[in-house]
Design a protein around this nucleic acid. Structure first.
Length: 282
DNA sequence: ATTAATGTTCAGAA
DNA sequence: TTTCTGAACATTAA
């Protein structure tokens, strides 16, 4: 479930190996699954990509952006189970796309692997990038959020704070896993109305976002029990060993040692928190 | 054997 | 306007 730390890890992993390289060939990989969504359709995308070179690799929220020499940008959206890889994929059955690279380097191709196949790849013209993924469509990157921006967004919302954290139009990059971790770190009740979180609570939130996400990036993201997420070099992330709330239902809270982590459902997804540390008032 | 659950995004409805 | 619901898909657990 690539969120900001996982996508940042992918970007950092591939950047030194694809920047400046030219695309020799681009194709779907033969497999038994349905093809993933590619815009424009495959043949046209192939025509557009071949012979172009990657001039930059960056992250936009939970998306990988590959800027191309003609000014367009290839945007990879891993969604649930998508991976951007330089090395061998977890299995061959769910290899979806392959970019073969010209010239010399440590790796000769870039791949997109996706078990569930909900991921998408889309080529944007420069002006499209602004209208589709610019401010308004995508909120401020989570790592760029300031306290005043948190105040601005939270004060005008009556949604639960956890649900607001998941809204990419408000803040880009936070997903279900890190929303639980961040709110636990900030000692904020996930069901609290966003507009009711106190100024000191928002201060803790701003701080926790930085702490949790930067640590998760350091540990190259979280590889959960199903083992799906891998770095670009097919290694496991290690931040799962540092989770304090996510998937720890019934276990002792690592903050207060006394409370037990509980699981609730918000917006049809699991939320994990410590009722003792994360009270509605505090 | 069916059903639910997983977690991200978008279209369409309330 | 804002918020909510279901679908896209593959796999596993109940």
């Amino acid at each position: 479930m690539p969120e900001l730390p996982e996508v940042e890890t992918m970007v950092r992993g591939i950047r030194p190996h694809v920047t400046g390289r030219t695309i020799r060939r681009f194709a779907e990989c033969p497999n038994t699954c349905k093809p993933i969504s590619v815009i424009p359709p495959l043949r046209r995308l192939q025509k557009r990509l071949v012979d172009q070179s990657f001039i930059a690799v960056r992250r936009l929220g939970k998306r990988v952006v590959l800027d191309l020499s003609d000014g367009s940008s290839l945007v990879i959206e891993p969604r649930m189970t998508g991976l951007v890889l330089l090395d061998d994929p977890p299995d061959i059955d769910h290899l979806r796309l392959k970019w073969e690279l010209n010239g010399s380097g440590d790796y000769d191709s870039l791949c997109f692997w996706d078990r569930r196949g909900l991921g998408t790849v889309r080529l944007f013209e420069p002006e499209q990038l602004q209208s589709h993924l610019g401010p308004g469509k995508l909120g401020t990157d989570a790592l760029e959020m300031t306290i005043s921006r948190w105040v601005e967004e939270c004060s005008k919302s009556r949604r639960e704070i956890k649900v607001l954290l998941l809204d990419q139009k408000i803040v880009a990059g936070i997903g279900n896993l890190y929303a639980s971790e961040i709110l636990h770190c900030a000692a904020i009740n996930p069901t609290a109305e966003a507009g009711s979180v106190t100024p000191s609570g928002l201060e803790r939130l701003a701080e926790a976002v930085q702490t949790v996400l930067s640590m998760a990036i350091e540990y190259e993201g979280s590889t959960l029990g199903d083992g799906t997420y891998r770095t670009a070099l097919n290694k496991h992330g290690r931040y799962q060993n540092h989770h304090r709330a996510y998937m720890r239902e019934g276990q002792a809270c690592l903050m207060c040692q006394k409370g037990k982590i509980v699981r609730i459902v918000q917006a049809q997804r699991s939320t994990f928190f410590c009722p003792r540390c994360q009270k509605k008032r505090g």
